[in-house]
Amino acid sequence: MVRGLLLVRLARRAEGRTGRVDRAGRIGRVGRVGAVFLRDLTAARNLGEALLLATGLLEPLLYLLSIGFGVGGLIGEITLADGQRVPYPVFVAPAMLAASAMSGPFMESSIGFFAKMRFRKLYDATVCTPVTPAEIAIGELLWSLAQASLFALSFVVIMTAMGLTTVTGALAALPVAVLIGFAFGGLGLLLATFLTGWQDFDYLGAAVFLMFLFSGTFAPVEDYPTAAQVVVHLTPLFHGVSAVRDLTFGSPGWGLLVHLGYLVGVGVLGLWLASRRISRTLCR
């Protein structure tokens, strides 16, 4: 209910701020991206997505409670590579934040976008307006990030309340969560342009689940076999999890910049390539 009200207010705000507009209908890039965002917001309001959104928060929370505290009760504290000893829930919570910041934007940008573009032909009408395919991609990505930001905000509040991180740590982790969403959103859009049908959705789901399990989420990566470590270091979620951990309980160093840079790179490259490919699909 509260989320529904929040969405309505956000919609009103967004309408007022979608760039410079006038009666004659001149419109800038910001306004055009805003129009795509606004469409999603309006649809979400109609579909009553509030409940769906709530489940987005519930999932990482349930993992935190069951594994972080449940399994954590059996483990107690764990020792990290640098010798630091932390309670298991403190170790797992940042990973849950990172994973939830990944899955929402990734699924929405890949499967969601594919369905809108190929099955529902939603953008066939949009491209007949001044809005360009690249602006459609950016607008959609921003919408999924807006949702992910709401989850992330709620989750860090819970983390802080449970004493799993400090207020400073929570505030620092929040933008990183949004950055993780950006990286996976860009990647998702790119993958969406390669999808051909329902059967491909299973592969995406499997890839996300594998990353969720093995990105240093539940055990330190240093405990993995060397070959596995190399693979894990390539996945964007590993960098996301590591960055959030550095900020919530670790000591941020140069490594943090590498993690953040990797995420920015994946997101920008994904979005750029996706825009080009979407353009070729919609404007043949």
């Binding site: 209908g25 419109i27 129009a35 009408a125 001044p130 809005v131």
Partner: peptide, 15 residues
Amino acid sequence: RENLTVYARCFGIAR
């Protein structure tokens, strides 16, 4: 109605 108003935003027509 929203099909029209939302589409109008793509042309920068005020609410």
